[in-house]
Design a protein around this nucleic acid. Sequence first.
DNA 1: ATAGGGTTAG
Length: 602
Amino acid sequence: MRQPLNRNLVSALSRQTHLSFVQTEAHNHIQRLRNCSDFVSAASLHSKVLKSGLLAHTFTANHLLNCYVRLRRIDHARNLFDEISEPNIVSWTSLISGYVDVGRPGIALCMFGKMPGCSVMPNEFTFATVIKACSIFSDLRTGKEIHARLEVFGFRVNLVVCSSLVDMYGKCNDVDGARRVFDLMGCRNVVSWTSMITAYAQNARGDEALQLFREFSHLMSDRPNHFMLASIVSACSSLGRLVSGKVAHGAVIRGGHDLSDVVASALVDMYAKCGCLDYSDKIFRRIRYPSVVPYTSMIVGAAKFGLGKLSLELFSEMIDRGIKPNDVTFVGVLHACSHSGLVDEGLEHLKSMFDKHGILPSTKHYTCVVDMLGRTGRLDEAYQLAKSIQADQNFGALLWGTLLSASRLHGRVDIAVEASKQLIDSNQQVAGAYVALSNTYILAGEWDKAHNLRSEMKRNQVRKEPGCSWIEIQDSSYVFYAGDVSSCAQGTEVVNLLRELESRMKERGYVGGSNGLVFVDVEEEAKGEILGLHSERLALAFGLINTPKGGTVRIMKNLRMCTDCHEAFKLISAIVERDFVVRDVNRFHHFKNGFCICGDFW
DNA sequence: ATAGGGTTAG
């Protein structure tokens, strides 16, 4: 009677022992898989797991799967996934996320589509992953579909899912859609705030990005991290806001994020766009292993300062250090050649793009070259080049617009007419094309044609939006419309100041031209010199000027809209009379690590 | 238990 019981007990005990042995073995494998950081060990663990029969154990198999995903061996991950007899939601999500990580969001979405057929239900992890795939793809339609589905599943309140939704709408240029999700979130963290701030910053709504950052700083006790600060600095760049940029730089230093390469890259760009190339250089030189991004920022920054030679030096330095340039880098290099009149070097670089670096020049590169040829008067070559390019819709208008302004500059009515036709056909900047062509006719003394064109514009109800410029004073922007001095409260005073400034600058050697800008470094370490620069190359830069009271002032120009120095003077005058009577900027400044940064405004 | 979100240059 006792035998069977004993036998049962023994067999139960041995089952227990076996089970715990298996568990221990599985546990050991999992520990090793967790720490595994190279492919050879992963493969060896794979065979051990296979031999021990633990691959049938989905949990263990998932660990192995994630190991391959971490090592970016997506094909190995895929093969393993196909061998798992009962893949669960974690197996699916891991593989989908692996495809997203290696930049194949299409396959990720495709797999997601196959899930219902395999009776696996997506969860919040899966949704967060596939939404990221949509944002990489900029696929708003699919993104919205998935958004609708997850609402049905009840993941609308999940923090991570919502953050990735905010990001997805932002990356798809639907900023208001992003804001709607953000506003409905029940709880938010640094990531969700960063997603929303970035959505603004990347969609030319920098003011709102800064506003939201202020709200974050007031409402949340969390400190901004390097993700958020990189976005904020970038918002300041696109706004040309030096003071806000310095405030952000202060926050970067205080938070100990000045060693982050990404933040440093953003700062390099910000200082360059705000007219302080010295600071860009200082920050750039502190980056131990600069990637292609900060190099490109410096190259573009120097190019916009008219320092073409410096751009080209940076470019060859980068090549010498074995850093691979990309298409953006070449936009900067060609831009540098164009703005410094280095035509032969420019053509050489265009050729080397594909020959040496395997990058196929695109419309934007050819546009730089057309600009380069056009500026130096080689208009026939520029025209031939423009005609030979199969320009895509978006960049075609820029190409012909570039040729148009060059023909106008050199009085080539014939080419101006052709370029305008192309521009009008492209259905973009139509009003600008009409105005530019009419101005070309006027320049060439063909008044009748100019008049006819203006009548045609009226008949077709083509209206040119008035051009505007803006300046930043402290943390406020002031907008001025072209040719309208009265839009500024003290119009007459401004005009008087303008005249005074103009004559003072002439005394210092300024040569008036159609594209001049005042350009002065006003930082404490380089005080006082007003440089009268008259080259076209400054048309793409920002101006700085010392004021009678010794303060720091800077101007920013809307470069496409107004290109004459008159407009620049108008802005400077406005700053002089508005800012320095009222405020003392220097009060907020302090020095840290050799930088003059600002105190907290938010 | 294993899987998920945000950053820089044109």
